Simulated scan of single mutants.
Amino acid sequence: MTPFDEITSDVPLVTPFQTMWNAAEETLLATQPQGFEVEDIGRRAWALLPEAERAQAFDELFYTYWEAVMADRETWTARDGGVS
């Protein structure tokens, strides 16, 4: 591992979809202070995303969903006393 790799190993990777998500959320917070749904952020982020980045973003959405499903299962297993 190079010194650069060591220094940057703790820096989180920001994907194009995350960048567009953050931009969409900021816009909605500014333009719709009465509130909005998470789907509004996602749809706006997807629309802002360059076509070339969409395949990677689609995979990212699948993995993010899977991580949430697994975390939910782990939470329910822990609540049920370790019985899955």
Rank of each mutant, 00 (worst) to 15 (best):
M1Y: 01
P3K: 07
P3S: 13
D5C: 08
E6N: 08
I7S: 03
I7W: 08
S9M: 10
V11P: 05
V11T: 08
L13D: 10
T15R: 07
F17D: 11
F17S: 10
Q18D: 15
N22T: 05
A23L: 07
A24D: 08
A24Y: 01
E25L: 00
E26D: 15
T27N: 10
L28W: 08
L28K: 10
L29P: 01
L29A: 03
A30K: 15
A30G: 07
A30Q: 13
T31V: 01
Q32I: 00
Q32M: 10
Q32C: 00
P33K: 02
P33Q: 01
P33G: 03
Q34W: 02
Q34E: 14
Q34D: 13
G35T: 04
E37R: 06
E39N: 07
D40M: 04
D40Q: 08
I41D: 10
I41L: 05
G42N: 12
G42C: 13
G42L: 07
R43E: 04
R44Y: 00
A47G: 10
L48H: 09
L49K: 08
L49A: 04
P50Y: 01
P50D: 13
P50V: 00
E51A: 11
E51I: 05
E51Q: 13
A52D: 14
A52R: 15
E53A: 12
E53L: 03
E53M: 10
E53G: 00
E53I: 01
Q56R: 14
Q56H: 13
F58S: 14
F58V: 02
F58I: 02
D59K: 09
D59L: 06
D59F: 03
E60A: 05
Y63P: 02
Y63F: 14
Y63G: 09
W66R: 14
W66Y: 08
A68Q: 13
M70Y: 04
A71L: 01
A71C: 03
A71I: 00
D72M: 14
R73I: 01
E74Q: 13
T75W: 11
T77W: 02
T77E: 14
R79I: 03
R79V: 06
R79A: 12
D80S: 11
D80G: 11
G82D: 08
G82I: 06
G82A: 09
V83K: 15
V83I: 14
V83R: 15
S84F: 02
S84R: 09
